[in-house]
Simulated scan of single mutants.
Amino acid sequence: MTTDAHPGPASASAGTPIEIAFSPCPNDTFVFDAWAHGRVPGAPAPAVTFADIDITNGMAERGELDVLKVSYAVLPWVLDEYALLPCGGALGRGCGPLVLSKELGLDLTGRTVAVPSERSTAYLLFRLWAAEMVPGGVGEVVVMPFDEIMPAVRDGKVDAGLVIHEARFTYRNFGLHNLADMGRHWEDTTGLPIPLGAIIAKRSLGEETLRHLADTIRSSVRLAWDHPEVSRPYVQEHAQEMDPAVADQHIGLYVNEFTADLGEDGYAAIRGLLTRAAAEGLVPPLGPDALAFPFSS
Rank of each mutant, 00 (worst) to 15 (best):
A269I: 07
Y123P: 04
F146L: 07
D159T: 08
I149Y: 02
T190V: 06
H212A: 15
A60P: 10
G63M: 08
A239H: 07
A214I: 12
D261S: 12
A277G: 01
V163K: 01
T216P: 06
V40G: 12
L192Y: 10
L128V: 13
M133C: 04
Y72T: 02
V221N: 01
R172I: 04
H37Y: 03
E64I: 02
L205K: 13
L291G: 10
F258L: 08
A83M: 13
M133S: 10
L286G: 14
S117N: 08
H37R: 14
F258N: 04
A214P: 12
G89H: 13
H250V: 03
E264C: 00
D226Q: 14
V153M: 10
G8M: 11
V67A: 01
S297N: 07
G38R: 11
V230G: 05
G94W: 05
A73R: 05
G197D: 10
E280S: 06
A268Y: 11
S231V: 10
V158D: 04
D243A: 09
R276D: 01
G183W: 00
R39I: 02
F22L: 11
E166R: 09
V40W: 08
A201G: 10
V255W: 09
L79Y: 08
P26Q: 07
S101W: 06
R222P: 01
S13C: 08
E81P: 09
D66K: 05
P135C: 12
G263D: 03
V221T: 06
A21T: 10
N178K: 13
T216A: 13
S297H: 07
G94D: 12
H165G: 13
F293V: 12
G38Y: 04
S220E: 14
A292I: 12
G156W: 09
D188N: 13
F174Y: 15
G197E: 11
G105R: 09
A278N: 05
R62Y: 10
L210Q: 07
T275C: 00
I194A: 06
A160K: 02
V141A: 03
A160F: 03
T121M: 04
A201H: 01
I270S: 13
A214K: 06
G15D: 11
T109C: 02
R111P: 05
A130W: 10
G161N: 06
D107M: 15
A268E: 15
A214E: 13
A224V: 09
V141M: 02
C25V: 14
E103K: 03
A73L: 02
L282N: 09
A279L: 05
D80K: 12
P44D: 14
V113D: 11
V74Q: 04
G191H: 06
W186C: 07
A245Y: 12
N57R: 05
A290Y: 15
D4I: 00
I200D: 13
G63W: 04
D52K: 12
R168S: 10
M182P: 02
